Simulated scan of single mutants.
Amino acid sequence: MANKDRNKTLLLELGKLPENNQCADCSAPDPDWVSYKLGVFVCLNCSGVHRNLSNISRVKSIRLDFWDDELVKFMKTNGNATGRATYEKAVPAFYYRPQQEDCAVLREQWIRAKYERMEFTGETKYPPLAYTTGFYEGMLWKKGKEKGQFQRRKFVLSEKEFTLAYFNKEDPSKGPKALISIKDVNVTFQPEKIGHAHGLQITYQKDSHTRSIFVYHESGEEIVNWFNAIRAARFAYLKTAYPTGSDKELRTRITRNYLKEGYMEKTGPMQKETFKKRWFILDSQDRKLLYFKSQLDAEELGVVFIGTDTNGYSVSECIPKRTRGNRWRCGVTVDTPDRQFVFMCEQEREQREWVEALRQVISKPMQPQDYTSKSHVTSIHTTGDS
């Protein structure tokens, strides 16, 4: 008869081993669930996805469930390292591996791609996986200008041309509504902002401004395929632009999540102007603080370049002496060589988070490409907003 306490202790010890002390699927620390059919240790969130793959995976809690001797023996001879060697043998360099904080659709499709569709076992797939072909097309729901309604639009991605195009009509002979260079594209999941579990934000540069497209697809698999197809094209571009860069170095530049987003109030350069509520995005890779009238605007109102402390940039909490029109009371001051910016946050927690995030960028050394970026931003450029 199995010894319940002894087996639980053995499993807890197995889970503390370096190869098992992070979730096999999202790297969350100290996973206390196990897929005893796949032989991997997973976190609570990922275990929920495994439960929906009952023909492939079966999960139990290390602490709450009963474990017999045979299952414990099976886990001893398996574990996360063995699982990775089997199910992650050939993950493309560009493919995004979700982390603990990533949205549900990314984690679910990563788990399904690994264990259900067996996409990374190294076996040749035919037809080839859609995101690996260098050409991808299909229909996505895109937010339009009028009334913010989402409309079905055709998108075409070409790795060969390094372009992403979308069409207002399905007939491509009429030409694309926009032809976007992969050079400056970023893509990030934004389910809460867009209001859809599969919401995706695509940003790019046009006429020295940052433009945004908001899209979604009903299928989680399809939207994640689009995400990784764009990453594949970006990776191919980076390989040509930086031929001496290693895959590890280039991987960090394919796409990125923004360091911090949210509403703040801002005033003008004289700090006497009326405060206005604006949506802010801090892009740590490009060292830019962008602001928009609302979170789903297609183009930013202005942008502040964030340099280093040695170049005269700093950030601090503050209580402004003069305020006009502001509803919020928690101030953030950003000093640049050209101007002091004053922003107001609704809560002290948001104030601390913005200060911490901005200090993180300020403390990061400038790279050669950052000086090029700075030259395109004269500390701030506006389209009708101070």
Rank of each mutant, 00 (worst) to 15 (best):
Y36V: 09
Y115Q: 14
K276G: 01
P128R: 13
D309G: 07
L301P: 01
E317I: 06
L17Y: 14
A241F: 13
A178N: 02
L301T: 05
I223V: 15
T132A: 00
T86I: 15
F167D: 00
G384H: 05
F341Q: 10
P243K: 04
S61Q: 01
R234T: 01
I254N: 08
K125Q: 14
S363V: 13
Y115H: 15
E299N: 12
S284I: 03
V185T: 12
E346H: 10
N7C: 10
K266I: 07
N311H: 12
Y216V: 10
A104M: 10
V334E: 01
E192I: 13
N311D: 11
E119N: 10
S373I: 07
L301I: 03
R322T: 09
M118T: 06
F214A: 01
P29A: 11
V105N: 02
S375A: 13
L157D: 00
Y95C: 02
K293S: 03
Y237G: 00
T77E: 09
Q369S: 13
Q360V: 03
E353H: 07
T82F: 15
L301E: 08
R339A: 01
R6G: 06
S181E: 15
F343M: 12
L140D: 07
E123C: 13
E19V: 14
V377S: 13
G134R: 11
F135S: 09
Q351P: 08
Q351W: 08
H217E: 13
I202F: 01
K277A: 08
G220T: 04
R359M: 05
N311Q: 11
I202Y: 01
L164G: 13
R153W: 01
V332N: 07
G262K: 11
K143Y: 08
E218D: 10
C330F: 12
T382C: 14
A85Y: 00
V185S: 11
A130H: 02
P320S: 11
R152F: 09
K272G: 04
K142R: 15
F74C: 04
A81F: 02
A236E: 12
R6D: 11
Q285V: 03
C103M: 00
L296S: 04
